[in-house]
């Protein structure tokens, strides 16, 4: 079975945030920004989810690096 959208986003975040916070971040921000559980996310929800993750990543690595990471995730998730 192929990975869900949430799993794919978490997998791409994991090398940076670590597996614990990557999974938690996707769940938390899916609920907070999209009002839905992570396992119901579809590809259409990805831009909004990445928007919600943006402030957190800005704090961690600044805006230029954040945009690089988010663009990469956007490109890879299917």
């Amino acid at each position: 079975m192929s990975a869900t959208v949430a799993e794919q986003v978490a997998e791409h975040l994991s090398p940076y945030l670590g597996p614990f916070n990557a999974g938690v971040a996707v769940k938390t921000f899916a609920q907070r920004a999209l009002k839905r559980s992570a396992d119901t996310l579809t590809v259409e929800h990805v831009p909004a989810l990445l928007d919600a993750l943006r402030p957190m990543l800005h704090t961690m690595v600044g805006s230029v690096s954040t945009e690089a990471l988010l663009s990469d995730i956007q490109r890879r998730v299917r």
Partner: peptide, 9 residues
Amino acid sequence: LALRGGMFG
């Protein structure tokens, strides 16, 4: 500890 396993940690 929260970021363990990730490079941000």
